[in-house]
Amino acid sequence: MKVLAFGIVKEIFSGSSIDLEFDNELTVADVKRKLETQYPKLKALASYAVAVNDEYAENDLVIKDNDEVAIIPPVSGG
């Protein structure tokens, strides 16, 4: 499963995306937990959200294969 990175998360992942092992019943909370273990610097961010198919996702959302998953660090547009 591909996870897209933006802003500072690209630096944390050392790239614009990473591959995460997909399994059934994987929730947004699970993805966060896995990523935080692999990339502890995520925990130092002011906050971050997960987007699934271009929408902010709640922690209990179950991710399906082929969903587009992205890590959204604190936004700073404008």
Binding site: F6, G7, I8, A51, Y56, A70, I72, P73, V75, S76, G77, G78
Partner: peptide, 9 residues
């Protein structure tokens, strides 16, 4: 926009 739109600087 500054709170929700995924744009970074």
């Amino acid at each position: 926009l500054k709170e929700t739109v995924p744009i970074w600087k």
